[in-house]
């Protein structure tokens, strides 16, 4: 655990009560790194849960997106919030950010929401 790097790249061993007290630490230093999530995805796959692995891979893509934007995306997926077109636009945005798996999720949602009446009117 002590050789791991946080999202910021800082080694987690540098995160101590003392360094927090000095104000040297930000939440990004104690946030998971996408490579770690990819590694955990492999562990999940090896333990018989490819869906959990997929989740970790989607999560890895979201690590570099800010809290506010992530929460905005979540809201956009809630029922009646977005038109299929808006969902496709977010998918494109996600693709540009390299979030291919999440983009796929949004594209699928655009399709299903239209068919099942879950999109914004």
């Amino acid at each position: 655990m002590n050789n791991q790097k946080g999202f910021s790249g800082k080694n987690v061993s540098e995160v101590t009560v003392e360094s927090i007290r000095r104000g040297d630490i930000t939440l990004d230093d104690v946030r998971i790194h996408p490579e770690t999530l990819a590694m955990q995805a492999q562990v999940a796959r090896d333990n018989g849960n490819p869906q959990l692995a997929e989740n970790f891979l989607r999560a890895a893509e979201l690590t570099s997106i800010s809290d506010e934007v992530v929460m905005g995306y979540y809201d956009a997926l809630r029922p009646g919030r977005s038109t299929p077109q808006q969902l496709i636009e977010i998918a494109n945005e996600l693709e540009l950010k390299g979030a291919i798996k999440n983009a796929e999720l949004f594209k699928q949602a655009a399709d299903v929401y239209a068919r099942r009446g879950l999109a914004a009117k």
Binding site: I32, N55, R58, A59, A60, E61, L62, D67, N102
Partner: peptide, 26 residues
């Protein structure tokens, strides 16, 4: 059921995304 899911203000896709959002913050 889909109706009750929607009444809960979510869809399987929003929940899947939320699940990943949590994992993305570890």
């Amino acid at each position: 059921t889909e109706q009750i899911f929607i009444d809960g203000d979510d869809t399987p896709w929003s929940k899947a995304f939320l699940t990943s959002a949590y994992a993305s913050r570890g």
